[in-house]
Amino acid sequence: MLRMYTDPKGEAYKQVIDVAIQNSECFVLGYKMGDLPSENQKYQSVLEELKPYLIKTIVIKNNNMEEVIQIREAYRSHAFYCSGTYYFYKSCEESGLLLKQFAGSLSDWIFPNLLEDLCFLKKDGEDYLYSVVHEGMYGINVTENEAIELMDQITGLFIEIEAHRDFNRLLDDAIKQKTDRLYISGYRLNKLPDRIRELTEIRWLEIFEQDLYRLPQALFELSKLESLRIMTADLESIPGSISKLKNLKELQINCASSDRPDSTWRTKSKEEISLNRIPPEIGELEQLEQLTINYTSIQELPIELEKLKRLRSLNIENCMIDQKPAFLQRMKQLEYVNVSRNSIFESLALTEYEKD
């Protein structure tokens, strides 16, 4: 079973449904935890339209985990993990057309809009294709060579393969498949190639590379990026050109991070960390909702943060700031604020100690 980096969408979703129909005996959709909406026309339409292809229904009551385990052993499918009502439908061209009609991606199959977690089962009951939408988990039961062939045929199907241990191959496929999500870690990178700008559809990007010290200008050309997470041992700066990421909703930077810690690795002191300021240009990120920066030598916050009207969470911990700036009091939309010289865990421990 090979994992997908993200779920296929649009035309890629339709093509994946066709492939799954051809390689499966049936597919499963369910209501989980017995939480059935009383009035939902789309739900009713799905059930009514798929009724001619219904094979059987399984009901698991009251989180009976013994029954869940028995069913999972019988079917070896990701579909069954809690109580609920599970519908088994025949895999055929007609039922496949309905799946393509009701949804535009695997992630569309989620409560309360549709039945949940579309999974295709082979004749032996094992998954051919699975989705666990709440957890963002998607996979397909093919060999490495079959995965490569499928990715050649379907643009937008991005499957994790052994060949992706080579970073250039990973980036090649990520660009080719127009992925919207990518996690980069363990490649011993000390810089990102300018080709990163070719990830034109990327919306979520996480980079965990301890030797990454500078962020290239090409990174800030990813105009659709909504979430950027950087974990590294030390970071030179946050370039002012971050203001170009107009759709960014979440920015998270963690220094003193190691993707391969060993007995010789040493965390720098905060005073040694190069990242010592937040650029005022960050105030131009009008969509920003969450800002987290951890373990830096930052000594003050730019007043331009006050321009971030959508900001809900501000977490600047393990820094060199002695007290919260007064302008934060004017940011009434903030739901969570932590500006501290210590980590949140150290702060909590100190609070408990002071109580005693």
Rank of each mutant, 00 (worst) to 15 (best):
P8S: 04
K14S: 13
Q15C: 00
V19E: 09
Q22C: 09
S24A: 15
S24N: 09
C26S: 15
F27E: 02
L29P: 03
Y31N: 13
Y31A: 01
K32V: 02
M33I: 09
L36V: 13
Y43K: 01
Q44V: 02
V46A: 03
V46F: 02
K51C: 00
K51F: 03
K51I: 00
I55C: 03
I58L: 15
V59A: 06
I60H: 11
K61T: 04
V68N: 13
I71A: 05
I71E: 10
I71G: 06
Y75W: 12
Y81E: 13
Y81N: 15
C82E: 14
C82G: 01
T85P: 02
C92L: 07
G96R: 04
L98N: 01
L99W: 10
L99Y: 04
Q101F: 06
A103I: 00
A103D: 00
S107D: 14
W109K: 10
N113Y: 05
L114K: 00
C119Y: 07
L121K: 01
K122Y: 03
K123S: 11
G125Q: 07
G125C: 07
E126N: 10
V132I: 14
V133P: 08
M137K: 05
M137G: 01
N145D: 13
I148V: 10
E149H: 06
I154W: 02
I159T: 12
E160G: 10
E160S: 15
A163I: 00
R165I: 00
R165C: 00
R165K: 09
D166F: 05
R169D: 09
D173R: 07
A174E: 08
D180I: 00
G186D: 08
L189V: 06
K191C: 04
K191I: 04
K191W: 05
L192G: 11
R197N: 06
L205M: 06
L205E: 09
L205C: 11
E206K: 13
E206M: 12
E209I: 07
D211N: 11
R214P: 00
A218H: 08
S223Q: 06
L225E: 12
L228A: 11
D234L: 14
E236N: 12
E236S: 11
I238P: 06
S243Q: 15
K244L: 05
P261L: 15
P261Q: 15
T264D: 15
R266G: 03
E271G: 02
S274T: 11
R277E: 15
I278V: 11
E281Q: 15
E281D: 15
E281C: 03
I282N: 12
I293W: 08
T296K: 01
I298R: 05
L301H: 09
P302Q: 14
P302W: 13
R310M: 14
M320R: 07
M320G: 01
Q323H: 10
A326F: 12
F327K: 03
S343K: 01
S343P: 04
E346N: 12
T351R: 06
E352R: 10
K355Q: 14
